[in-house]
Every structure is written in C-alpha cells, then in structure tokens.
Amino acid sequence: MRLSVPSIPLLSTRPPAPTRSLQEAIERVAAFLLPGNVTILTGAGVSVDSGIRAYRGHDGRYMNPNYKPLFYHQLMDESRAGHTFRQRYWLRSYLGWPAIRDTTPNPTHYGLAALQYARVAPRIITQNVDGLHHQALNLRPGIKNNSVLELHGSLHYVHCKHGHAVDRTTFQDWLSAANPQWKAFLDETERTGNKPRTNPDGDVAIEHLGTSYTSFIVPQCPSCLLEDRVNSVHKPEVIFFGESIPQPVKDQSFRDVEAADRLLVIGTTLATYSAFRLLKRAVELGKPVLLLNVGPSRGDSIEEIDRIDMPSGLIIRDVVRAVLYVSPPRNYDSKKLTAAPIRGTTASENPVVAKMLQSGIVKPPEDDTQPGAR
C-alpha cells in the first residue's frame, strides 16, 4: 500500500459529535480505558501543544492551502530534476530541523506514556514522525521497540539510496559543513528569533527565498565514498507520498489492533488510508472504538464508533488519574498482558507515574489557534 495524498472531503451526513463538558469527556474517555488492553492510534493533533503545527484546522481543511507535498519518486529521481527536488527538500529540512530537534513532549504524550507504563494501554501506533512518544517513554526517537509503532517513520534518521544510515543530527552537521552561507543564515534566525514556519514533517516554507535553494549542496554519502561510489541521494526515514509503507510495519499495525480489546484514536482526521484502515479493522472485529479529535474526520461516516470533539490536552491528565488511581475492574483479564496493570494505590504512589503526570510543555504554535490533526 502506497501513501497517497489525502484528497477526500472530511464531511459526512452523520451529525457532529455531541457537545460534552470537560467532566463528561473525562468520564467518557476514562470509562473507555478502564477495562485496559487498549491500543492507541495518534495523529498530528497530539503534538500541537508541543509547538508542532497540525496539517488540518478545526474545519478539516489544510492549514496551508498551498500545501504541495514532495513525492517519493521526485526525491529519489537521479536526473537533474531529482537533484533540484533534493536541494529544495533538504534546504527546507535543514532550516526546519532545529525546531523539531528541540521540541519536547506535552501532557498528552506523557499521559499516554503513563498508560503504557502502567500497562493499561501497552501499544501506541502513531502517524507522527517527531519522536515525541519515544521521548515521553525515555526511549531514543526512531529506534524500533514494542511500545511505539511509527506508522510513517521518523525524522530522526537519514539513509542514502544504498542503505547507509546516519542520525539526523549528524546529517545536519554535514549539511552545515557543505553550506556555510546557509549555516550563517540559520544562525541569524536563531539569534533574532525570526524563525521560519515549521511544518509537521519538519520542513519550512521557503517560497519567499525564491530560487536560492539551487545553491544548496547536498553532501556525498561518506560510506559510499569509502566504497568508491559517488552518491548524494539521501532520504529521511519517513514515508513519503507515493512510497509504500514497509510490510513489517503494516503487519505490526494490524497485529497491534487485533491484540487489543478496544481502540482509542486521538488527534487525527484519519485522512491517510494507512490509519483509517486500522480503525476499519477494529470495527470489523467488533472492537469498541473511541475517537477523540477536534473537527471532522474520515471516521465520522462509521456509525459504530463513538466520538468526542475536544483537544486531548484539555483532559488527558485527569483521564489518566481517573483510570490509574482506581482498582482494576473485576472483569479485567490480565492474562492478555505480559504483566498485571499498575492500578490503585500502587499507581498513585508510583514515582514514575507521578513524574509523567507532572511533565509536559504546553506551547502551541502562536498562529494556529485551533488544534487540528493529520
């Protein structure tokens, strides 16, 4: 399955989600999580409080009406045209990387991490490429693990067309060394605070710079040079539009849904089919599904799912406390997990849980007043 540009209208004949008070929303989400063994699917909306812009606003429309994604075949094209595409992409990424690198998790990331730590929701599938779920669990971003499945990859690693991988910070240093004039430009934006607008995938808009990106140098792969090959075709470990999601990742996403008793979907319009099909699979298996998102989504047409129209950051800490600080329900089947969940007094006195529920920044982008989702 290839990742295609979402072009579906996020509209349906189904009535909007009913209006709920904060307390009603907290109680509804907590009740959904309380039985445990939940898989959570997240989108760009969960990272808005960390300062990363969402793709879509509260009305389901793209925040940037001129959004034109770079396709996989364009990035990997070895012709002169492909070289120009890579210059443009890597300049945009070079200028946007510091904002992604320095971003830290918000209360939603830490709240979900607490649910994972307590083994109530042991699996997270995320469409995000920012690595913030990993950071909240004190894991190294981009490293594969059983706790967080990055459906669309990670910005934290880069590989060349021959498979040589390097971490993104090192690659940033290569770009700086090859482009001292752009390094000076980036340093000046850092010094003045006049930073360019960073998009969810870690790049920035450079239209105002005209065609100056044609001076940007994409460095040769050092490992390829040691193998007597000249190669400057590099790609972040992110699934581009037109690129297939690796089969192992696709298979694992279905296993994570099938292993759960229920599916909680947070901060996503489900516009990409790679995520929407997971919701469909849960419904096919008769698993309860709850969607917590702002505005319309592709899931609105599915009658079987419950919906709450609200940003997760407003309620997540209270939800987690309501779930963890009570004893497990009598009908809880701990045999489905590798270990019993941490609940009740054990959770309320646990220093890791306490720290997670006190952690997280809330610093949404200044010019995006309405959280949206991918």
Rank of each mutant, 00 (worst) to 15 (best):
L91S: 06
G43Q: 08
H109P: 07
D261Q: 11
Y72V: 01
D306T: 11
V352C: 04
S223W: 00
R56T: 08
S244H: 09
V323I: 05
V166W: 00
M356G: 08
T269Q: 10
L270S: 08
I245W: 09
R229G: 05
A271W: 07
V233Y: 06
S215E: 15
P236F: 01
I305W: 02
I239G: 06
G372N: 03
A81T: 09
R140M: 10
L33P: 07
A25V: 02
G193F: 02
I315Q: 10
Y94M: 05
L155K: 07
R56E: 03
I40L: 07
Y89M: 12
E24F: 01
L357P: 04
V238A: 09
H164Q: 03
G51C: 08
I315C: 07
R123P: 01
L263Q: 10
V5W: 13
E190N: 05
P311L: 02
S244K: 13
G372Q: 04
P371D: 02
H109S: 06
D167V: 05
R56P: 04
I143S: 12
D256P: 00
R20W: 05
H234Y: 10
L95F: 02
V294F: 04
G295C: 03
L22F: 10
I125Y: 12
R14W: 03
K363W: 02
P200E: 13
P328N: 07
D333H: 06
R197L: 10
T338P: 09
Y273V: 02
E24M: 03
Y157T: 14
R28M: 13
F241N: 13
L225Q: 15
E349H: 12
D201E: 15
Q23C: 04
A17Y: 11
A113M: 02
S327I: 01
A354S: 14
A354E: 14
A373S: 15
T211Q: 14
Q116M: 08
I100L: 12
E304V: 00
I266D: 02
H83N: 09
E243M: 07
G45N: 06
G372D: 02
A54E: 06
P200W: 04
N293W: 10
M63Y: 15
Y117H: 14
V320T: 10
Q74M: 05
G372K: 05
